[in-house]
Simulated assay, not measured.
Amino acid sequence: MPLLDLDQVIAVHDEIIERLGGIVGFANGGRGGVEGALKRIEMHQLYGHMVDVFSIAALYAAALARGHVFNDGN
């Protein structure tokens, strides 16, 4: 199953902030923090053999929130 890439995740975040308001930008890790969170999802999919779209969606939510990658993402 194809995963979202870095630019897609940032674009979705930026669109949500634009529509609903909030603090723009990245937290301390910058784009690298987002990339790290996405790598965790990739590793879970590859080595955990996760193919269920709902499990993968939950991983996105958990990895991005736990990583505190966006200024207003939690």
Rank of each mutant, 00 (worst) to 15 (best):
L4V: 03
L4K: 13
G36E: 14
L64P: 03
E42K: 13
D72A: 05
A57Q: 09
L38V: 10
R66S: 09
L4R: 15
L64M: 11
G32F: 09
V12L: 11
A62K: 15
A62S: 15
V12G: 00
G73M: 01
V53A: 15
G25W: 08
H44D: 01
F26W: 04
G32A: 15
A63Q: 14
S55G: 12
D52Q: 06
L59V: 00
G73Q: 02
H49L: 12
V34C: 04
V9Q: 04
A11Q: 09
H49W: 12
A61V: 10
V34S: 07
I17K: 06
H13K: 10
M1T: 10
Y47Q: 02
H49D: 15
I56D: 02
L20P: 00
M43G: 02
G29C: 06
A61M: 08
I56N: 03
M50E: 11
Q45N: 08
E18N: 12
I10D: 05
Q8M: 10
G22L: 07
G32V: 08
G48I: 08
V24K: 15
M50F: 11
G29W: 05
A37N: 03
N71L: 04
F26A: 03
I10E: 12
H13N: 13
M43I: 14
H13Y: 15
L38A: 08
Y47A: 02
